[in-house]
Simulated assay, not measured.
Amino acid sequence: MAYSYEYPRPALTVDCVVFGLDEGELEVLLIRRGIEPFANRWALPGGFVRLDETLEAAARRELEEETGLSKVFLEQLFTFDAIDRDPRERVVTVAHYALVKLSDHKVRAATDAADAAWFAISDLPELAFDHAQIFEIALERLRGKVRYQPLGFELLPRKFTLTQLQRMYEVILDRALDKRNFRKKILGMELLVELDEVQKDVAHRAARLYKFDDRRYRKLVKQGFSFEI
């Protein structure tokens, strides 16, 4: 038997804060809206949830449709439900944040996005809707979790130097880290695999390359291991 609801229901959307790391600079992916409201304004990628999909499925679909990104780290962030956050109608959005390796993904605008581009978090344009607030909360969440979970490795190439690793943490946490103490701590966790490879095509002395041992990390977590930077 079909049921009808007596009360009107708000529309449901998803919005995604996508972070990437480019030459030591933390960036966020934005789309230029091709339709009203806020036509030609920059915004976070996102859109309306379909009746036959979960929130995560909707977020991944919108990311791929509007930016071309797929198979990325994605995590639910927060629900934003201000009454007047969308001038069209009553809209509740469930925000997510994503982390991507820039070298693995090519960005392209599609569907109702007129353009898609990366912006340094220190130089963001004015954003549509309440997307500036969503971005700030996503950045705060990233800064909190990256210290206690190895999320930052999602931003680095598969093979990286210790300098690149330290720089990634410094950029996200927005503070300098002591080189000696950082290396002692990160190597002491025994989560990095030292490779028999060095950097190529660099002007300075080539540094040793490492990779993150995800299998060992998951094994250690089951034994009560606590990751902390």
Rank of each mutant, 00 (worst) to 15 (best):
S4Q: 13
A11V: 11
C16F: 07
L21S: 04
E25I: 15
L30F: 00
I31P: 08
I35W: 02
W42V: 08
W42T: 11
P45W: 04
F48Y: 07
R50A: 12
L51H: 10
T54R: 03
L55G: 04
E56T: 12
R60D: 02
L63W: 07
E64V: 05
E64T: 07
G68N: 04
L69Q: 06
K71W: 03
E75D: 13
Q76L: 08
F80I: 09
D81H: 07
A82Y: 08
I83W: 09
E89G: 11
H96V: 06
V100R: 05
V107Q: 03
V107W: 01
R108M: 14
A110G: 15
A116C: 00
F119W: 09
A120V: 04
S122H: 14
A128H: 03
D130G: 11
A138P: 01
R147P: 01
Q149E: 13
F153I: 10
E154P: 07
E154N: 12
L162S: 06
E170I: 06
E170D: 01
V171C: 12
L173S: 03
R175I: 06
R180F: 13
F182W: 02
K185M: 13
V193K: 15
E197W: 00
K200E: 15
A203Y: 11
A203H: 13
L209K: 07
L209V: 01
K211N: 12
F212K: 03
Y217P: 10
G224R: 00
S226F: 09
